[in-house]
Amino acid sequence: MKPSLETLRSALLASLFFGIFIFIWYALTVPRSGDRAIFELSEEEVAQLDELGMAMEDRLYYLESGLDFEQLWQLAEMQFTREEIEMAGGIEAFGFQRQENGEAEVRSHFPTPGQVFSVGWEMIRDPFYDNGPNDKGIGLQLAYSLRRVALGFGLAVLVAIPLGFIMGMSRLFSEALMPFVQILKPISPLAWMPLALYTIKDAEQSSIFVIFICSVWPLLINTMFGVATVRKDWLAIGRTLELGRFQMAGQIILPAAAPTVFTGMKISIGISWLVIVAAEMLIGGTGMGYFVWNEWNGLNIDSMIVAIFVIGVVGYVLDWIIGFGQKAVRYVD
């Protein structure tokens, strides 16, 4: 199929939006810092430093590193050797440097697009490295998260679809269970987590449980709704054909409700992906959520942004996969 003019135009517009976004990002984050201020000392100041025993070589080095007289004087007075300063991480790390306009040099700031791209490239180039339990490549972290989502979501499907069927077919059941569903549905995964950790006593199973408990409701409600709203005439036809209860369910209700069920699955998998990142930030160990948390605790904003972007892309892919199933069961009335 040739891309139509419409798609071409929307693609162009999307690229334009993206370009504007990157430009604004760049404009806001480009380091505006001026040159580093290099101070000069008067003869009297030099004499004072000499008196305290600071070697000329050291004095020149510190001046070049952007220290002013007062800071030099402090170093000299406390009898710091260059070696000691190097042991303590070097003079650059002390944050004494000033810019020419007198403001402090900003050490960490929000990363520019360029920084994020280069960090992202580094991360994506080697996604499967494994340096022990606390440092794994982004590909491995993704695999951990996806595995948890697959288990939690799979469990939700196994429970929600049969239960949804029963609730959709029986008014009694749906009315009896609905209050529970309504109350449990809005509970945040973060509220479940401590309870799960406490009772299940296993971080891995707890996170799977939390995915399950959060993703089961939309699927349940959609299945129920899909089953309950199968067109009456179709059921009537089934009855005239004297179909049994199970035949009715399998041959009429299931195909009729399938699109709605898949919509529920789409919502559920989206929720699972949201939940897993939050859960992993809480329990630590492995996964994308842990990765984001670990980068946050080192305040590495650039790799955090890359991870967030990857989370978004994977969420989109998950949605797209369920979309395939949805297309397969679509029908026209």
């Binding site: 800071q71 300063i85 042991m87 303590a88 991480g89 790390a93 670990n294």
Partner: peptide, 26 residues
């Protein structure tokens, strides 16, 4: 990253006990 995930110079300042105090002093 596997351990503290911090700039080494910060850890050196802490462990050697030679550090800027944030008020301009060392």
């Amino acid at each position: 990253r596997a351990y503290l995930n911090q700039p080494p110079e910060v850890l050196r300042q802490i462990l050697t006990g030679i550090f800027p105090d944030g008020l301009g002093g060392i």
